[in-house]
Computed example of a mutant assay.
Amino acid sequence: MSTPSGGPAVDEAVRTLLLLMPRIVGRVKRLPIPAALQGFDLAPRHLALLAHLEYDGPVTVSELAARLEVAPTTVSLMVSDLAKLGVLERTADPADRRRRIVAIAPAFAAPIAEWLSGSASAWERVMRDLAPAERATVVGALRAYEAALEEGLTDRS
């Protein structure tokens, strides 16, 4: 059933999204992992971390934690795991030798870019056809959905 503005009613939109989201997640999970990254048991949290480093460049663990919206200790553990595998490098910050800068190791830069490109190119195709306000609505709706899910999990604990 449509609303007077021509869009779907709330219950129809929710139904459509509940059916759509598992298909989207399934397709994202089927994006091929480059050979150089296979066998590393990478999880979605690693993909988010690698995406930030790929798109924003080298940063400190604290900056990465802020961008990922998780505790610095969580990021530190992920960085340690990926550094042991050789996927990430930690170097001294030239501005403050006590701080460490995290970056993608050169040998893994191309495979990580390849892995992220499937999802990124799909988003670029979708976003390119939207007006800036529509893009803001999509991003805002996804952020609000994530927050509502988190709130629901918190309420159950």
Rank of each mutant, 00 (worst) to 15 (best):
A113Q: 09
K84F: 06
P132I: 00
P111I: 03
V139R: 02
D81G: 06
W123L: 06
R90Y: 13
L64Y: 13
F108C: 01
L142C: 11
L82C: 03
A107P: 09
W115D: 00
T137S: 15
T74E: 07
T137E: 14
I101G: 07
R99E: 05
M127G: 05
G140P: 13
I104S: 01
A120N: 09
A113S: 10
M78E: 13
V87W: 00
A110F: 12
D96N: 12
D96K: 04
G86P: 12
V70H: 08
Y55A: 15
V138K: 02
R90D: 06
Y55G: 15
V75T: 02
H52G: 14
T73L: 10
P132C: 02
S62P: 02
L47S: 06
A109L: 13
L130N: 08
P106I: 08
V139K: 00
S117F: 12
T74Q: 12
A71L: 09
V61S: 04
A92N: 10
P132A: 01
G57H: 14
L64N: 13
V75W: 00
T60C: 15
A107L: 08
P58A: 10
A110L: 06
P58G: 08
A65Q: 10
A109N: 07
V138E: 04
R100W: 12
L49Q: 04
V87F: 00
G57P: 14
V79L: 14
E69V: 15
G57R: 08
T60A: 15
T74F: 07
G57K: 12
P111M: 01
V139S: 00
A66P: 10
R98T: 05
G86V: 11
